[in-house]
Design a protein around this nucleic acid. Structure first.
Length: 420
DNA sequence: TCTCCGATTAGAC
DNA sequence: CTAACGGTCTAATCGGAGA
């Protein structure tokens, strides 16, 4: 039986989440900004029509925004994560197998489903009715083709939000793929599309029929797989189980330039706390700690200094206090006065599941206090993040990120609601 | 010459 | 008046060090 994969993608997801609770913004050009209110990461169709680019720095858009009454909101991840969970939960009812690919995308295996197209329209309507989020559905025999079909569904209003690649005749496929730029293909980004152009490969169709050994030699396995997927051969499996993370990073750009060690250490203790919560949540230990500081790379007129240091731990840990002692020490070592720091962070690596660590036969395992960390996680979960802190964790406000336009967390936090 | 490993690159969202 | 540009993650590949 030929596989039938659906890729369901939410339209302008962050903007759509905001509009569910602000219907007055339905036709207003609207964007959502990245952390620190830095760049545009989600755009309404009206904002796209104004020429706002994905990833564009907000300060570059401000004049245009004022001229056209465009609004910008800070990102509200509590809201988006909760809305995402609702959407995914609805989609999971449609098939035995699905893969949550990102916060706003889901692959659904509809192989063997009768009346495929009707089912897809049902999904769309149900998600809209139950959450208020508009989605488009792309259908195809492979992940890459389902993604492409989704792109077509979004682009062509006539599709009414659903497009099935399988419905096309060979001649129609050739013609349609010939009209779409290669850069739209999943896995073909800026660099590779530029290099493909040098080989005369401009459209999706060009890539689909390109000479495979040459492609493999010039661009590697990844692109060969992409080509085969475009030809209808599945190379990418549905990943139903979320694999454990191999590395965990916690970092932030600061709201203002930071010049004092104490402030950097305070920020770092927050990053340590976040990273270790994630590590324990997946039941792992880390054996590598990597700490880094950054100056403002956009100010080339100022002196640049981007130090970092890694420490391999003799004994893997997931204890926030152990990690914080190292991180604190490293910040002290890396810090040099006279620089304006704009960002810092920590990376945990060499991650292994608890209970899989190699015992050290020279030193007894220092058992780490797992009960302390359990209590810490338990209290923070029950009474809110930051109820019990690691070190000063956020006492200094000098580094905290800019979030001047954040909406209430309508679905997850009573306190944030304006009328309560 | 081969293997290992850290750094770099490219991609995704 | 000026400056204001995100965060995490993975896989493949590159290139140097050491065997």
């Amino acid at each position: 039986m030929t596989p039938q994969l659906a890729l369901v993608d939410c339209n302008n997801f962050y903007v759509s989440c905001e509009r569910v609770f602000r219907p007055d913004l339905t036709h207003v050009p609207l964007v959502v900004l990245s952390n620190n209110d830095g760049c545009v990461v989600s755009r309404s169709n009206e904002a796209k029509d104004l020429g706002i680019r994905m990833g564009q720095p907000w300060f570059e858009c401000q004049a245009l925004a004022e001229a056209h009454g465009m609004l910008a909101l800070s990102s509200n991840y509590a809201l988006y994560a909760d809305m995402s969970n609702r959407v995914m939960s609805i989609l999971s009812d449609y098939a035995a197998r699905h893969e949550v690919y990102s916060i706003d995308e889901c692959f659904v295996d509809l192989t063997g489903t009768p009346r495929l197209k009707q089912t897809s329209y049902d999904m769309r309507e149900r998600v809209m009715a139950w959450t208020g989020i508009p989605v488009c559905v792309g259908l195809g025999p492979t992940k890459t083709l389902a993604k492409l079909a989704n792109h077509i569904a979004k682009k062509h209003p006539r599709s009414k939000g659903v497009f099935n690649y399988n419905d096309l005749t060979p001649a129609q496929k050739t013609k349609l793929l010939g009209q779409i730029d290669v850069s739209e293909v999943w896995g073909v980004g800026r660099k590779i599309s530029a290099r493909l152009a040098e080989h005369g490969i401009h459209s999706v169709q060009d890539l689909r029929v390109a000479h495979t050994p040459t492609l493999r030699a010039q661009f590697g396995v990844v692109l060969e797989k992409t080509q085969r997927e475009l030809q209808g051969t599945a190379c990418l499996d549905l990943q139903e189980m979320v694999p454990d993370k191999q590395q965990i990073i916690s970092s932030r750009s600061f709201g203002q330039t930071v010049t004092e060690v104490a402030v950097l250490k305070d920020a770092m203790s927050t990053f340590v706390a976040n990273a270790c919560v994630k590590l324990r949540a997946q039941g792992s230990y880390a054996a590598l700690i990597h700490v880094f500081l950054c100056t403002n790379r956009f100010r080339q007129d100022l002196p640049q200094y981007n130090p970092s240091f890694s420490v391999p731990l003799p004994q893997p840990t997931n204890d926030s206090l152990v990690v914080n002692r190292w991180a604190d020490h490293l910040v002290g070592r890396l810090f040099k006065p006279g620089y304006g720091y704009k960002k810092a962070g920590i990376m945990l690596g060499q991650i292994t599941p608890v209970g899989h660590t190699q015992a050290d036969w020279l030193e007894p395992a220092p058992a780490g206090d797992t009960r302390l960390m359990q209590a810490l996680d338990g209290l923070n979960q029950r009474y809110g993040r930051g109820t019990v802190k690691v070190s000063t964790q956020g006492a200094h406000h000098a580094w905290q990120m800019k979030q001047e336009r954040k909406s209430p967390s309508y679905t997850t936090d009573w306190q944030s609601l304006p009328c309560i």
